[in-house]
């Protein structure tokens, strides 16, 4: 039962902190910092389902976020839909598309799959650049009118923030729930040895399709919420390849395959990034430092931070998931 896991309560406490902290004194700058961390956590924990649990490296993960943003913004702006409904619809639509694409590309293994995900990301971006109803390369803007139904821009942004935190909590709870379920066990078996898993009775084709599709849902919802907050979207901010890769770096840093690792890695990376950006000398070298960090982790600590903790304290495996 998930309620018995300490991690579940930690997730709730973390989410409560995210909600409460900026609320004191209506601290907008803090809220803006925290929302970025929250998005990072959403992306890395859903990506973890593919990379950490199933062993399939998705290099194009950000495509779910970007598409969710586009669909969400389109539905709220051009169609006047309510944000929550639009965000959910975006999630469903993108998951469905992921299922369709997944059936094709999940036949590929290892690096071929990774490359295919890059191809899908780039193809979607190229498509949106040519797609008229979505503004082609200029993108779409949202007028302030859209915030009216929420009681004005300020209120809308706070409510939007809470929704994002909700999605973050859901992402973490989802990863935990899958990890302790039979479905998760099947995914781990696929990760360890896909052919053996199949011989043991795991329907690998279906399992992979499901997890790929599921891993798309919450990022798409988050995309819809975030771009609503930003009020605009274009194919370059929506489908930035480096964001996809940052997701992977975060996961490796924190420890792929664990729920805590995904969250920690996201948090650490965002902290590092904000630190680098504010230091005038170092901001140019942001990429260099991130790259160096990734190299060190890959060469010396491929299990990330949590992997290192597991090696120090094997008993921690049961507690920190």
């Amino acid at each position: 039962m998930i309620l018995r896991r300490p991690s579940f309560w930690l997730i709730l406490i973390l989410s409560a902190a995210f909600v409460y902290l900026p609320l004191r004194g209506q601290n907008v700058p803090l809220r803006e910092d925290l929302v970025l961390v929250a998005v990072a956590i959403i992306l890395s924990s859903n990506l973890n389902l593919m990379i950490g649990y199933t062993g399939y490296v998705n290099f194009g993960h950000i495509v779910f976020y970007g598409l969710g943003g586009y669909i969400g913004l389109y539905l709220t702006t051009a169609r006047g839909w309510n944000l929550v409904v639009a965000a959910l619809a975006a999630g469903v639509a993108v998951s469905f598309l992921a299922l369709l694409f997944g059936v094709g590309i999940l036949r590929l293994r290892g690096a071929y799959f990774a490359l295919a995900t890059i191809g899908v990301l780039q193809a979607v971006q190229a498509f949106v650049i040519n797609f008229d109803p979505w503004g082609r390369s200029t993108g779409m803007y949202m007028s302030f009118e859209a915030y009216k139904s929420w009681g004005g821009a300020m209120r809308a942004l706070w409510l939007d923030y809470y929704l994002v935190i909700g999605v973050m909590a859901l992402s973490l709870i989802l990863s935990l729930a899958i990890k302790i379920s039979k479905f998760g066990l099947g995914l781990f078996a696929i990760r360890e040895n896909e052919d053996a898993a199949s011989v043991l009775g795991v329907n690998t084709t279906v399992y992979k399709a499901i997890v790929y599709s599921v891993s798309a849902f919450l990022p798409a919802v988050a995309g819809a919420l975030m771009f609503f907050k930003n009020g605009m979207i274009d194919p370059f901010v929506a489908f930035e390849f480096s964001l996809s890769l940052e997701g992977i770096v975060m996961l490796m840093l924190g420890g792929q395959g664990t729920v805590t690792g995904a969250a920690l890695g996201a948090g650490m990376y965002e902290w590092l990034r904000s630190f680098l950006l504010t230091s005038p000398k170092l901001s140019d070298f942001q990429l260099v430092i991130a790259g160096g960090l990734l190299l060190v982790v890959v060469l010396f600590a491929p299990g990330g931070l949590i992997g290192w903790v597991y090696r120090l304290l094997p008993r921690a495996r049961g507690v920190i998931e």
Partner: peptide, 8 residues
């Protein structure tokens, strides 16, 4: 050739 699920 044995196929253990190594990390489990």
């Amino acid at each position: 050739i044995v196929q253990p699920l190594n990390e489990m």
